[in-house]
Structure formats: structure tokens, C-alpha cells
């Protein structure tokens, strides 16, 4: 049975790639992923904002209250050097590369032009096989237009493309007016892969404390519908590889996402729920299903259910939602 796929030019043994998450902060976990059959790993994101805020915070605390009072002109010893850059992250990439054979994809979230380009270059130098640009921000400025937001994505891509030779993927937000158009422009702008979708942190509020609180929730299988639709729509229309990263919880999900045209199925929440070893089960179940349904390779099914190739392309379009509404019967008040 041939489960291999090609993602951004990288040969993957199976479509099962572990997506960026804190699981990959630990080198042992990365080894476990490979042992469980993962075909690649996207390392947790390096956030330039975090590095900057750490630097500013450290500077603030090292200077706060100093030179004010004769007996305590400082409060901390001044080390000869601080490790305030991405060294820790880059070392992690290096160690991960030494530890596993599968492709190691670095993930970057920059906030400045220098941050995007410098760190991207350093990640390549550290041995990353590819780069995932995690363009993760919530445009809250009421004066910022959609076109400007899109241009930002394109600009970042082009800056990074200029400084690295390894494949570059863009992890997208689903919130574009015309996602297909954005995807095509990114494709034309040199993106080797598009990842659907970034899951944004969604704050909650506490009724007891009247406070906004972080509330990290794992994805549910329903979340797969969104990437599935867009991969289906884009398959065959752009050159870039396509990957899905939300709501892949079962072998069936993987099969579905392959059929609509994905090149990689990225796993995260499912591994939090069932452990890294669960990758093995998923692979086994994929094989079983394929065997039962007489598929001999993943490539055979890839794109078979895309909008282009499916029997009813309009199912992936807006009208399909209206139909669904019609077929949905709300429960009665007393049932």
C-alpha cells in the first residue's frame, strides 16, 4: 500500500504530519512522533512578538528602580550576555533534525520586516526542511482595508522568498472576502504550500469574575468542514501544495481531506486527546479502509472529490448551504 504524498516537494511517507503545537517543544515528543509514524512535523511557532516583549520586559525590570536610592543603585546582577534571540528555537530545530529523519518544518510568526527575513534565514541555516509562515494577527484597526491585509500577506511572502531557498508555506486565516483569489495570488507570489487554516485563540469571559479569560479549546471533527471545502475548491486551480490543519481526528477525516485534494493532513488536537501514539492507529485505519475499498495509493484518491473532479461541483458552493438549511428540522420546544 502506498500512502506517500508529496508536500511542497518534500516526500512524505504518509500524509500524516504533526502541525505546529506545544507538543513539539519537547524533543522526546518529536522522536515519539516519528516512532508513531508521523511523516513530518511542523515545529511550534517562533513568535517574534514574544522575543520582542521578552526583551522589553527584561530591559524594564533591569532598569526599574535603579539609580534612585543610594544604597541600591541596581537590583540585579548584570550578566555578560543574555540569550534573547531565537537561539533556543534554532537549537531546537538543529536537535530535531539530528533526532529524526522525517522532514522538520519550522514555523515563524514575525511582526517586523527584519523579523520575518532574519529569522527565516536562520531557520533555514539551522536545517529546517521547509518553513511555514504563520501570519497570525487579528486586524482590529477599523481603517485597515481587506486589500491592505492581503497585500501584507503577499509582502511577507515575497520578503521571505527572497532570503530562503527551502519551500515556504503560508498558514492562512479563513477570514478573507475572497479566499480563492488570495490563494491564487499567494501561489503566484511563490508560496510552495498553503495551510488551511490558522485557528485563532478565542477569548471567553467569566461570568463570575467579569473578566476576559483565555480559554484554549481543542478542535472538534466539525472543524474539518471548512478546510475541506476550500481545499476542494482550490485543488487543481493553483500549483501550491495544500494542507489541512483543523479538525482531523480520524482516518476517515484524513481520507476525506485527501480526496478533496490535500497533500498533507496535519494533526494536533487528536494527539492531545489520544496521545502521540494514536498516529499509528490512524495509519492502520487508513490502510484498512483503503484495502477494503481497493485503493492502492493515496495519490490515486488525491483530488478525486475536489470541486473540479466531483460529480456536483456546486455542492461546494453557497447553494449547498441553503439546501442544508432546508433539510434541517429544528427540535420542537417540548421534545
Amino acid at each position: 500500500m502506498d500512502l506517500s504524498t508529496k508536500y511542497m516537494g518534500l516526500n512524505l511517507r504518509t500524509p500524516l504530519v504533526v502541525s505546529a503545537s506545544p507538543l513539539s517543544e519537547n524533543l522526546d515528543n518529536i522522536r515519539k512522533m516519528e516512532d508513531a509514524g508521523a511523516s513530518g512535523v511542523v515545529i511550534y511557532s517562533l513568535f517574534e512578538e514574544q522575543i520582542t516583549s521578552d526583551r522589553l520586559e527584561l530591559h524594564h525590570h533591569m532598569t526599574y528602580g535603579t539609580d534612585s536610592y543610594a544604597e541600591a543603585l541596581t537590583y540585579f546582577p548584570e550578566p555578560s550576555e543574555f540569550h534573547l534571540g531565537p537561539e533556543g528555537y534554532l537549537n531546537h530545530i538543529r536537535k530535531a533534525k539530528e533526532a529524526v529523519k522525517m522532514p522538520v518544518i519550522a514555523s515563524l510568526n514575525g511582526t517586523s520586516a527584519g523579523g520575518w527575513t532574519n529569522y527565516a534565514k536562520e531557520m533555514q541555516q539551522a536545517g529546517a526542511d521547509a518553513l511555514e509562515l504563520n501570519i497570525y494577527y487579528i486586524p482590529t484597526d477599523v481603517d485597515l482595508t481587506g486589500a491592505q491585509v492581503e497585500q501584507t500577506y503577499l509582502d511577507i511572502l515575497s520578503m521571505v522568498r527572497e532570503v530562503v531557498t527551502i519551500p515556504v508555506a503560508i498558514k492562512l486565516s479563513p477570514f478573507f472576502s475572497s479566499l480563492a483569489n488570495v490563494a491564487r495570488r499567494l501561489d503566484q507570489g511563490g508560496a510552495d504550500g498553503l495551510v488551511f487554516f490558522n485557528r485563532f485563540y478565542q477569548p471567553d469571559i467569566s461570568l463570575e469574575h467579569l473578566e476576559v479569560r483565555p480559554n484554549i479549546i481543542l478542535s472538534t471533527p466539525q472543524a474539518l468542514r471548512l478546510p475541506m471545502r476550500w481545499i476542494a475548491i482550490l485543488h487543481g486551480r493553483i500549483k501550491a501544495s495544500l494542507a489541512a490543519t483543523s479538525g482531523i481526528h480520524t482516518a476517515q477525516d484524513v481520507l476525506k481531506i485527501m480526496m478533496v485534494g490535500a497533500d498533507a493532513a496535519m494533526l494536533c488536537s487528536v494527539l492531545y486527546r489520544h496521545g502521540i501514539d494514536h498516529i499509528k492507529n490512524m495509519e492502520r485505519e487508513i490502510e484498512t479502509w483503503m484495502s477494503e475499498h481497493e485503493y492502492h495509493s493515496i495519490r490515486q484518491m488525491q483530488g478525486s472529490m475536489s470541486q473540479e473532479n466531483c460529480s456536483d461541483p456546486s455542492e461546494f458552493e453557497r447553494a449547498q448551504y441553503v439546501k442544508a438549511l432546508h433539510s434541517f428540522k429544528p427540535a420542537t420546544a417540548h421534545s
Partner: peptide
């Protein structure tokens, strides 16, 4: 003075 504390400073 500040390069050890980062470019932003």
C-alpha cells in the same frame, strides 16, 4: 550598552 538586550532597545 543595549545590544545585549536586543535590537528593539
Amino acid at each position: 550598552s543595549y545590544s545585549s538586550k536586543g535590537d528593539e532597545i
